[in-house]
Amino acid sequence: MATVTLTLNGDVRTASVPPETTLLRLLREEFGLTGSKLGCDVGDCGACTVIVDGKSVNSCLMLAVQADGRDVVTIEGLATMSRLHPLQQLFEDKGSLQCGFCGPGVIMSAKALLDENPDPSEQEIRDALAGNLCRCTGYSKMIEAIQAVARDGRGEPAKSAV
């Protein structure tokens, strides 16, 4: 067993897991954070995207032990009790998701983009979402929502960074 201590959505958390455990399984099975989805489990679909030290990462491709000592933000770290994160709100307002399975990953990729580049071009948004497959929407309304968030200048800092 390997011990992993990480900052997860602002809180320091520790777990003891078999060394082959992926970060995704650590999040879902040890910490009960099932917002990050297990889609392909080989890094093709992006449904498991989380932010590690400010970068979007396929959590199915990262071992839990590699996250030791690092800062991890998942979809659960975005909303507060009183309000949604602007990306979540705009995705809702614009009907950006349909079945929703890709949603947590898409939103985390978008958040990582906006944290680094608050005013991205449409092409930069398309590049940032290229690792997140969506079967329902054609991406159009996701791109519109991300543009709207960028326009409003409301890309909030992550909870862990507050």
Binding site: G95, Q98, C134, R135, T137, G138, Y139, S140, K141
Partner: peptide, 12 residues
């Protein structure tokens, strides 16, 4: 809005 979503998704 939902009609647009269906059309955009169908086109993809």
């Amino acid at each position: 809005m939902l009609v647009e979503g269906q059309v955009e998704g169908g086109i993809s």
